Structure formats: structure tokens, C-alpha cells
Simulated scan of single mutants.
Amino acid sequence: MNIHLQPEFDDILQPLGHSAAEFFLAASLYHAHKISFASAAHMAGLDFEAFKTRLLEHFNQGYVVADECALEDIQMIGKL
């Protein structure tokens, strides 16, 4: 799926760095409990620490723990 953003987003996202749209989409899905932290970090193209840092920077909150997400994260850690 290709996503075409409205031009108004360019002025907002550009100062936030490369792949800002991917980060905010992944962060939004994570905060909505649709994907795990591990999945969101991967989708944003960041490692765990970098994703947590950006969440704290932009949302004043790092981890959001939901039961279903915690289980998926534990399974991912087991694979590492």
C-alpha cells in the first residue's frame, strides 16, 4: 500500500527528521494497542532504545503495557 500524505504534512514532518511519518504512524498504532512495542519499533525503523527515546520526546511516555502486547513482546525477546 502506498500512502500519499497531504502537502500540509511536509512542513510539519520535515523538521522532525527522516522517516518521521513512519515513526508517528507506528507510535499511533502502538498507543492505540494495535501493535506491540517491538512491532512499532521495527515499523519505525528504530531499535528499542531509539523508539523509546522518541516516544518520550514526543509523547512524554515510553512504554504502554497492555496484556496482549506484553505477551507478544516477551515472545519476541525469547526469539532474540
Score class of each variant (00 low, 15 high):
Ile35Gln: 09
Glu68Thr: 12
Ala66Asp: 12
His31Tyr: 14
Leu71Glu: 10
Phe51Ala: 04
Leu46Arg: 15
Leu25Glu: 10
Lys34Asn: 07
Glu68Leu: 05
His58Thr: 03
Leu71Ala: 10
Leu46Val: 09
Phe23Ile: 11
His31Ala: 14
Met43Asp: 07
Ser28Gly: 15
Ile77Asp: 01
Tyr30Ala: 08
His31Asn: 12
Ala40Ile: 05
Phe23Lys: 09
Lys34Cys: 15
Tyr63Ser: 13
Ile74Asp: 03
Met76Arg: 15
Met76His: 13
Lys52Ser: 06
Val65Ala: 13
Phe51Leu: 06
Ala70Cys: 11
Leu29Ile: 00
Arg54Ser: 00
Ile77Trp: 11
Tyr30Glu: 02
His58Asp: 00
Leu55Gln: 00
Leu71Arg: 15
Asp73Ile: 07
Val65Gln: 10
Ala50Ser: 12
Ala44Phe: 10
Phe51Arg: 13
Ser39Lys: 10
Gly78Glu: 12
Cys69Lys: 08
Ala44Cys: 05
Ile74Phe: 14
Phe48Met: 07
Ile35Asp: 03
Val64Phe: 09
Gly62Asp: 09
His42Asn: 09
Tyr30His: 14
Leu25Phe: 05
Lys34Tyr: 07
Ala26Lys: 09
Lys52Ile: 14
Phe51Thr: 05
Ala70Gln: 15
Val64Pro: 06
Asp67Trp: 07
Glu68Arg: 14
Lys52Gln: 13
Ala70Met: 08
Phe37His: 12
Phe37Asn: 07
Ala40Leu: 04
Arg54Gly: 00
Phe51Cys: 07
His31Asp: 12
Glu68Pro: 00
Ala70Pro: 10
Ser39Glu: 03
Ala44Thr: 03
Ala44Met: 02
Ser28Thr: 11
Thr53Phe: 04
Gly62Pro: 06
Ile74Tyr: 11
Asp47Ile: 12
Phe23Thr: 02
Phe37Pro: 02
Ala32Leu: 15
Met43Leu: 12
Gly62Thr: 12
Phe37Met: 13
Ala27Lys: 14
Ile74Gly: 01
Asp47Cys: 15
Ala27Ser: 11
Val64Ser: 14
Lys52Thr: 07
Glu72Trp: 01
Ile77His: 03
Gln61Trp: 06
His31Phe: 11
Phe23Arg: 05
Ala38Arg: 03
Gly45Ser: 09
Phe37Gly: 08
Ser36Leu: 07
Asn60Arg: 13
Met43Trp: 08
Lys52Trp: 04
Ser39Ala: 02
Phe24Ala: 02
Ala44Glu: 02
Ala50Lys: 14
Gly45Trp: 09
Phe51Asn: 09
Ser39Pro: 01
Asp67Pro: 06
Ala66Glu: 13
Leu56Arg: 01
Ala41Arg: 12
Phe59Ile: 01
